[in-house]
């Protein structure tokens, strides 16, 4: 490595300072520098969504962003789900939903699906089937036919509602340190995934769509 740059990534609440080449993709930094292999790679072109992680609360495709572009940001990967308050020391309701509703088969797309599902439920705790389908439309699954993934996210929405009710009736909008209220959100004008004509952002996010020309691929 000839030319490296020091960056700081806070992943699942833990701060990591690493040296990366400017050209290193975020997904490779997560998988190979930080050894968190739950985030997968399936297509290299931003189509499959296996590499979806949350960056400052927004789902992004980590194969479409250089690690340096994520410098200073808060990331969340599948490995952090069990530590979220709504997991209550066990599985997160989304993880539970995927198991209960048979929302996975080979498991390869699952971490990305969980991240897209989490982003959706953070924004919209009670989504319709159509909204769920739209939210995961950037995540390809070759095994399940999506029907049970939709059920899994519906299961999680119901569970989260119960968790919220048990916690005193407040809606669990996010409750995580990776998507806290003061973190910059995608449409606060600063967000740029760094790839021309692609934001890698969520398809559910209308404002974000508008900011990037309405085109989502």
């Amino acid at each position: 490595m000839t030319n490296t740059r020091e960056i700081t990534l806070t992943v699942n609440g833990t701060e990591h300072t690493i040296d990366v080449e400017p050209r290193q993709l975020l997904v490779h930094a997560i998988r190979e520098e930080l050894d968190m292999t739950g985030t997968h790679i399936g297509c290299d072109t931003g189509n499959c969504g296996a590499c979806t992680v949350l960056k400052d609360g927004e789902p992004i495709k980590s194969c479409l962003m250089f690690a340096t572009q994520a410098d200073g940001s808060e990331l969340m990967t599948v490995e952090g789900m069990e530590d979220l308050p709504e997991a209550r020391g066990d599985l997160h309701p989304l993880q539970e939903g995927f198991r209960e509703e048979h929302g996975l088969q080979c498991g390869y797309c699952t971490p990305g699906m969980l991240m897209s599902g989490k982003a959706l439920l953070d924004e919209n705790p009670d989504p319709s089937e159509e909204e769920i389908r739209e939210a995961i439309s950037g995540n390809l699954c070759r095994c399940t036919g999506y029907q049970n993934i939709v059920r899994s996210i519906e299961y999680a929405a119901e569970e989260l509602e119960e968790v919220a009710a048990a916690d005193g009736g407040t809606t669990v909008a996010s409750g995580t340190d990776t998507s806290s209220a003061d973190a910059p959100s995608a449409f606060d004008s600063e967000f740029d995934c760094g790839v021309e004509n692609c934001c890698g952002g969520p398809t559910t996010d209308r404002n974000h769509d508008a900011d990037t020309g309405g085109e989502h691929k």
Binding site: H40, V78, E79, Q95, R99, G107
Partner: peptide, 18 residues
């Protein structure tokens, strides 16, 4: 319910590239 799910939903699968 599938025995294999636990590792996949928690990011603990072990694929070749891992």
């Amino acid at each position: 319910k599938r025995k294999e799910d636990q590792r996949f939903i928690t990011g603990r699968g072990n694929y070749v590239d891992d």
